[in-house]
Design a protein around this nucleic acid. Structure first.
Lengths: 69, 69
DNA sequence: ATTTTTTGCAAAGTATGCTTGACATTATTT
DNA sequence: AAATAATGTCAAGCATACTTTGCAAAAAAT
């Protein structure tokens, strides 16, 4: 499962899960599940979250555990 | 549906769909479907494809049509 | 021109992302 | 201390990513 900086970024910006969810057009449970590692965000959702924080996808999601090509 | 530069990058590198598929660990049909816009790649697959070409996700996938936040 | 490689497509099935609704626990506020 | 806000979780269901097999057409190679 991918690690993410979402929780860290959210707290830096004093943002609740619900506010972020609303901003990127998903439900709060979706944000919770991604933060807690239940599943990986879709590409479009990953983009929306990164853009919301003014970052790239690679800056928000940690791909270091993805098996080598 | 997201536009991608996959086909363009593949041809620049003289790579068949099957070779790319093998390299990133999916089937040929998955590459075809993504190139033809049948569906959007998952986040991890998007990363693997971008990394294969030595690019970032944002350089391979075109998010300009994703609705504004 | 014939063979071989590459590509597009279709249908059925499995796996995973996301929703809805609801409840319990932990912060935070007053 | 009591009320409110924020978070984690569970289950059922829908939507979409991906697989498998197989066939047909287009492109490339011989």
């Amino acid at each position: 499962m991918l690690k993410t900086r979402i929780q860290e970024l959210r707290k830096q910006n004093k943002l609740s899960q619900e506010e972020l969810a609303l901003a990127v057009g998903v439900t709060r449970q979706t944000i919770t599940s991604i933060e807690c590692g239940k599943y990986t965000a879709s590409l479009v959702l990953a983009y929306k979250i990164a853009k919301y924080f003014g970052l790239t996808i690679e800056e928000v999601f940690d791909f270091s555990d993805v098996e080598d090509l």
